[in-house]
Simulated scan of single mutants.
Amino acid sequence: MADITRRLGLHHLRSAPTAHIRHHKRGKLVHDGPGLSFWFRALSAAISEVPVDDQELAVTFHARTADFQDVTVQATVTYRISDPALAAARVDFAVDPGTGAWRGAPLEQLAALLTESAQQNALDVLARTPLSEALADGVTSVRERISEGLAGEPRLPATGIEVVAVRVVAIRPEPEVERALRTPARERIQQDADRATYERRAVAVQREKAIAENELTSRIELARQEEELVEQRGTNARREAEENAAADAVRARAEAERTERLARADAESARTIGEAKAAAQAAWLAAHSAVDAATLHALAATRLAENVPRIESLTLSPDVITGLLAKLGHGAGERP
């Protein structure tokens, strides 16, 4: 909207660079161009403001597919006014000299023209397309058809309008139909999720089975090694017992031989000693056989005295003395 101010009975207009201003005074074109700024009298001025920047038009309409299903088409049409003079001649872009606002609604008229044209072309495509194809590939086909239809629409160039771009945002069916269409896909997704869950569980079971088998194999191997260890320990104990028995036998045999040798030596020594004692005794007896009895008695008394323990005191009775004296006297009488 142009910026209009009032000073001393005159009006001053200042427009934006994206607005094309056409100023007529008494039926003659005085100012024509974008971004103008000038003074004018309101009573003699006719001013039009035509926007020359790109305009975005959101288009939403309903259509019916080949299988009689209602769909909603959401699109955006970008256009601009390429010929402001022609647009101002075909559409009312006049502004109020006092406020700078449009007297009518020119952009709404252009939007209605573009919307009707776009809708007509989209309906032609969707009326020959089943719902499934419209939802799958309808966006591209509808966009191309709208672009071709707007490019071939004769009213647009006659109004000075140029279509810059067409975008189809979405084609959506009714909510219950959309839910019904989503159900098979959701079921497939759920089945895939369940299958993945089952496969993951199966893999987990296989891994647990493999782990259990490995543990069992390890236990079997450990038991076998323990068995071999027990057998080896038994073999070692048996060998040790055999070695100990053999060593004990050797020791016993050596001890027996030693004892036998000692016994033989003791017997030989005892025999030698006995023979020596016998020879000595024989010699002793032979030496004393020629000696008289008194001498033998004296020797016996001497030997007795040598072997009798020490006597501290001796008591002789008269009977003993008498007997000894008698024996001594008898002995003296028999001596030659």
Score class of each variant (00 low, 15 high):
Leu325Val: 15
Thr272Ile: 08
Leu216Ile: 10
His297Lys: 09
Ala270Trp: 04
Arg233Ala: 13
Arg195Ile: 03
Arg145Lys: 10
Asn244Asp: 04
Val291Gln: 10
Asp54Cys: 06
Ala134Thr: 13
Leu216Cys: 01
Ala326Tyr: 05
Val164Phe: 02
Ala19Arg: 05
Leu285Ala: 14
Pro157Met: 07
Pro84Gln: 04
Thr115Ser: 11
Ala87Thr: 01
His330Ile: 08
Leu262Ser: 03
Val230Asn: 11
Trp284Asn: 04
Pro106Val: 05
Pro106Phe: 04
Thr217Trp: 06
Asp137Thr: 13
Leu114Ser: 04
Ala270Asn: 11
Ala254His: 06
Leu29His: 02
Asp248Met: 10
Arg188Phe: 09
Lys209Met: 13
Ile273Asn: 12
Ser117Met: 10
Val166Gln: 06
Ala287Lys: 11
Arg271Asn: 03
Thr78Gln: 08
Thr140Trp: 06
Glu108Asn: 08
Ser48Val: 02
Leu123Lys: 13
His23Gly: 02
Gly331Val: 12
Val291Met: 12
Ala58Phe: 08
His297Glu: 14
Thr78Phe: 05
Trp39Arg: 08
Val142Thr: 15
Leu114Ile: 15
Arg90Ile: 02
Val203Arg: 15
Val91Ser: 01
Val177His: 07
Ile189Cys: 00
Gly329Thr: 15
Leu43Tyr: 02
Glu275Gln: 13
Ser132Phe: 08
Ser218Arg: 11
Asp266Asn: 12
Gly27Val: 06
Arg186Asp: 15
Glu255Cys: 01
Leu57Phe: 09
Ala237Lys: 11
Thr295Cys: 03
Leu29Ile: 11
Arg253Ile: 00
Leu324Ile: 13
Lys28Tyr: 02
Ala118Gly: 06
Pro97Val: 04
Ala118Glu: 03
Thr235Cys: 00
Asp292Cys: 05
Glu226Asn: 12
Arg219Gln: 09
Leu296Val: 12
Pro309Asn: 03
Arg207Ala: 15
Glu260Tyr: 06
Asn121Val: 06
Glu133Cys: 01
Leu10Val: 13
Gln232Ser: 10
Ala287Ile: 02
Arg201Tyr: 13
Val52Ser: 03
His12Gln: 12
Pro318Phe: 03
Thr99Lys: 07
Glu215Ile: 12
Thr259Pro: 00
Thr129Ile: 07
Gln55Tyr: 13
Gly323Asp: 14
Ala298Gly: 03
Ala170Met: 04
Arg239Pro: 00
Thr115His: 14
Pro51Glu: 01
Gln109Tyr: 07
Arg22Trp: 02
Ala237Val: 14
Ala180Leu: 15
Val169His: 14
Thr315Ile: 14
Glu144Ala: 11
Pro17Trp: 02
Trp284Arg: 09
